[in-house]
Design a protein around this nucleic acid. Structure first.
Lengths: 222, 222
DNA sequence: CCTACCGATCGGTAGG
DNA sequence: CCTACCGATCGGTAGG
């Protein structure tokens, strides 16, 4: 792996120090790539070993840096955690909005929503949302608000989906609790499902749909 | 809080050292009480701050001891974690077996099972199972087997419940996945439910039953 | 991003 | 269980 243009970068930093404070992401293109790679490493390690269980030195080593270097890209370890979660939510939100926008019957759309969510959890390199799901506890209270705002948008999409299903008679019971139970069942799969096993993600999505939804009312029913 | 009979205890330890190795729980009744209290403290703190996020000094302070003292009761911090999980499983298992033994129609029994599981998660002082649910990652591979064995018995009870429901036509889809989804939905509630809020645990159990089970077939159906 | 380093903290232990 | 303590490690920083 070639270390890209170190001279240029050092030059940019000098500029930054002498110029008035102008946000911080002023570092040039190579830095942004490096930061992304570093963030992927963080997501992967946080998922595997937990935030508290992951060392700056773990991260540095996995990213091919020396132990002090991650702090060139992130101010603190906590900032790495927050960045991981935000990136995960932004991507997941984009994907979920895409599915919600499809013109599909409720049942098919529900299955696609679940499938998309499963991909967010188990897709290759998708370690960002799992970190959110399992290390929320480690997020400082000062940092929670921004993440919660994104998360609320995610929940709103799912609530909309559940309401549609309930209105169509495909799902019963308290709608808000239904949303929480459905998402919980899927999120929990991160604990037991391993990609590459017998069941595919398609199969999981199908099984969840069968479990949660009633058959389309044929003629009888209410 | 009176410090109970320290002289007696010291005496017992002397004996233990001069006698042949005879397991380790030979410490007298006062010690056992103290150990239980210590374990409750561990469970509480592990649940709140995570295993990695909890310090021996946190534990010591909350238990009213000095920093080296917990190691009189447990060999390592890891041993505390394992003890917490095992105690949680043993108690949960006992409770669940009790419900399974009841002579009830499948639907009612399912609701009771869920209610019992919710109590295991949210009941006052019940911090043991939540630690198992959220800090499995911190369990050393050498210690996993014993916990898994207990866990398998727990899962077997639930599988039996789900199979009964499926046979009665109250639940559809892959049975093993159904068990995982149902338990996942309930387990996940630890993330969002807080006791003392609007909804009671009874309400949760009812809502989950409504969501997962179909209405008893009235006359039509297969 | 590397080098060299620091103060704080952590799990654990000896010895009583 | 207390006292006194240790070696290791950790997040983070100055300075280039």
């Amino acid at each position: 792996m070639p270390r890209t243009v170190p001279t240029r970068r050092r030059h940019l930093r000098q500029q930054r120090q002498s110029s008035p404070p102008k946000a911080r992401v002023q570092r040039g293109r190579g830095d942004a790539n490096r930061r992304d790679a570093l963030l992927r490493v963080c997501a992967h390690l946080f998922r595997e070993k937990g935030f508290d269980g992951t060392t700056i030195r773990d991260i540095s080593k996995a990213a091919g840096m020396h132990s002090g270097s991650p702090f060139y890209h992130f101010k603190t370890k906590q900032a790495m955690l927050v960045a991981v979660m935000e990136q995960g939510l932004v991507e997941g939100l984009r994907k979920t909005e895409g599915v919600m926008a499809l013109a599909l019957p409720p049942r098919e759309k529900f299955e696609r929503m679940i499938r998309a969510h499963l991909d967010t959890i188990f897709g290759p390199g998708n370690d960002f949302i799992p970190v959110l799901l399992y290390d929320w506890r480690s997020v400082t209270s000062a940092n929670r608000a921004r993440i919660i705002a994104l998360r609320d948008r995610y929940d709103a999409l799912w609530q909309q989906m559940v309401d549609t299903l309930a209105a169509a008679g495909l799902l019963r019971g308290d709608r808000k609790l239904a949303r929480l139970f459905v998402l919980g069942a899927i999120n929990w799969s991160a604990k037991w499902y391993r990609p590459g096993g017998r069941a595919s993600l398609d199969h999981l999505a199908r099984a969840a749909t069968e479990l949660f939804l009633r058959p389309a009312r044929p003629s009888a029913a209410r």
